[in-house]
């Protein structure tokens, strides 16, 4: 996993705006990141910081209107996903990129069997016939740790527990052996013990299948145990990015520091966690002209009000490769 390897996914300058009745909402503002083969990139940030919208923009999953992906390139396998037709993009979704969503209770269709829902992408993308798809679906269910897989294909989602349903979602996402798996808070809706089981499963599947993973969470504790690299998002921007050890050892952005202080103990109350930093992420009605975190930042000074900080490497390597941060305070004061 050398940093020099060609990334499987390379996102540059992504901008997504929602056109609502109350005006525009700039949800993603010039987000750039890449994903190396086999790597697990953790994306953290409070709820509302633009994590989901970023990932759904990549792959054309946002309904338009109201969403408008305005700028950027998303390179996957040598092609720019943002320039693709809707039809071509459908060939990528579910085949090259798999998605797992937050709420397993509502993400599966209640009126179709689990088998049917796993077989759909197999038939659609892999050109399997029904019989072959069925065999493969049973293999996938077994792979994600569901006992008696062949028989469970005929079950409906409501006959599974939340954790089991999330395993089914993972089976669907991995059905066509994707290069990239995007998991959007896949354990947030589950109890702590089930959460741990799903984490173990993903670690295990990563070893076996070797796909690259984007793991979205607002829980830095989860990231510590699973990610290779971490990207911290706030106000629709990447505010800090570093290898996981580096980030935990040497956090730069005041927001990252605040997040690290809020990691719960193992038994931790999940609700109270992020309220430790006063205030909420902003809803931006225009392209940001100032630091989005300034209102909640203990270190904000004059420059933060007039200029949105750019990401800057702090270890002499290129932005995105080593450790970089978007903060005037770290640039001028902390490292002065």
């Amino acid at each position: 996993m050398a940093d020099g390897a060609t990334p499987v996914l390379d996102v540059r300058g992504l901008k997504t705006v929602f056109r609502t009745r109350g005006g525009e909402v700039h949800a993603v503002n010039s987000v750039s990141f890449h994903l190396n083969p086999g790597e697990l990139l953790g994306v953290v940030g409070e709820s509302g910081s633009g994590k989901s919208v970023t990932m759904m923009s990549l792959i054309g999953l946002l309904p338009s209107p109201p969403a408008d992906v305005r700028a950027g390139t998303v390179m996957l396998g040598g092609r720019d996903l943002l320039k693709m037709s809707a039809d071509d993009l459908r060939d990528v979704r579910g085949a090259k990129v798999g998605f797992v969503f937050q709420d397993p209770m509502t993400s599966l269709n209640p009126v179709f069997t689990v088998g049917n829902q796993i077989m759909e992408p197999l038939i659609r993308h892999m050109g399997l016939n029904k019989k072959q798809a069925q065999i493969r679906a049973a293999e996938l269910l077994a792979l994600v740790g569901i006992p008696d897989a062949a028989a469970r294909l005929k079950s409906y989602p409501h006959q599974f527990s939340g954790g089991m349903r999330q395993r089914v979602m993972i089976a669907i996402a991995l059905a066509c052996d994707p290069d990239v798996l995007i998991a959007d808070e896949p354990t947030t809706a589950l109890d702590v013990t089930i959460q741990a089981q799903i984490l173990e499963l993903v670690k295990d599947l990563r070893q076996k299948l070797g796909m690259a993973i984007v793991w979205i969470t607002h829980d830095l504790g989860v990231i510590a145990g699973i990610a290779d690299r971490v990207m911290v998002m706030y106000g629709g921007q990447v505010v800090e990015q570093a290898p996981v050890r580096e980030l935990f050892a040497n956090p730069q952005h005041p927001y990252t520091r605040a997040l690290l202080k809020t990691i719960p103990s193992l038994t931790g109350e999940r609700e109270a966690r992020l309220q430790v930093i006063e205030g909420q992420p902003p809803i931006l009605s225009g392209a940001p002209t100032a630091c989005p975190f300034r209102a909640r930042c203990a270190y904000a000074f004059a420059r933060c009000e007039v200029e949105n900080p750019e990401r800057r490497a702090i270890d002499g390597r290129a932005v995105g490769q080593g450790h970089d941060v978007a903060c005037h305070w770290t640039a001028e004061v902390a490292h002065a």
Binding site: R93, G94, F99, S107, F112, P121
Partner: peptide
């Protein structure tokens, strides 16, 4: 507006399948 519709789209299913299979089957109940 349900989450399973997004799942169907994330699987790369055609709009026709998303609407006339996944959504319609539920809506008809």
């Amino acid at each position: 507006a349900q989450d399973y519709v997004r799942t169907a789209r994330a699987k790369g299913m055609a709009e026709r399948v998303v609407v006339l299979k996944h959504v319609l089957r539920n809506s008809l109940i």
